[in-house]
Design a protein around this nucleic acid. Structure first.
Lengths: 141, 141
DNA sequence: ATATCATTTTAGATATATTCTGAGTATTTG
DNA sequence: CAAATACTCAGAATATATCTAAAATGATAT
């Protein structure tokens, strides 16, 4: 996705393409990790120090609402984000807490009985265990 | 699980069965929702006001480490907990943020190629959408 | 282009969640 | 019992996220 496409995607979501918003989106798309809001804030301001914390949070919220960004379900304290687009599951390391992507594959849906009146939008797998870095050594944190 | 079993489970995890720790564990087991640390703190102190916040957090950490309690991966601000034991998946409401259980069913594991050197311990599904309460009305938050 | 209006940004204050500190208490061990 | 260890406590400190009110920006209609 290039600049023009980002702009279109933003506007399709009913959002103006402001420099601050664009910067957040572009950073997330360039990233294959899952930055926290604080990291995004820092990264955006490193390039062109022009976004306040509130704006970063506002834009993240707006982008999530517009479906362009996903808030990753990780139980650590700080929320983590990634640009939607490529679907993937998530692997969370028991030891270091790192979040990594796992190649997407389809997952069977639950019995409609189990869902009841709920309306299902998407489902995602969370794997837990030890990441490649933490796996070999059984050691301390 | 009755009192004696809780005591055993705690000790098997290398933890003493203190009144505060027991209270946290017993409360979580009696619960089929997913309380936040603040709710657990309040509940424990409602019965017998004897646990400080720090102790509640410490005990939750210890219980998670011992594998008796699970920290639910929900992206809201406050961490949520449940007693392990019955396996289940989780449904998170887009609108109200509520976390509900979905009946457990086995999920296919990823290709070992996709996992690489990682060591898999467990995997869990996260469903997103609208809960029964939020589903009918398309309205505001 | 000028007025108007909604959207967005900002700095800092505030709210919320979690962890830390250092001292005290209980429990186990030798 | 004495000593070591585990645990708890209240409150302070930190981390994370949201709110506020004013100013800036961009869009739309004259």
């Amino acid at each position: 996705m290039d600049a023009a496409e980002i702009k279109k995607a933003l506007e399709a979501g009913g959002l103006r393409c402001t420099p601050q918003r664009y910067a957040v989106m572009a950073f997330l798309m360039a990233q294959n990790s899952h930055p926290t809001a604080a990291e995004i804030f820092a990264a955006v301001n490193r390039v062109d120090p022009r976004s306040s914390r509130a704006t970063t949070y506002n834009n993240l919220r707006d982008l999530v609402q517009a479906g362009l960004v996903r808030e990753v379900a990780a139980e650590g304290r700080a929320a983590r984000f990634d640009a939607t687009g490529m679907r993937h599951h998530h692997f969370i390391c028991d030891r270091c807490g790192g979040v990594e992507d796992v190649e997407w594959y389809a997952v069977p849906k639950p019995a409609s009985r189990a869902l009841g009146k709920r309306v299902l939008r998407e489902c995602e797998l969370i794997f837990r265990g030890l990441c490649a870095k933490c796996a070999p050594r059984p050691a301390s944190r």
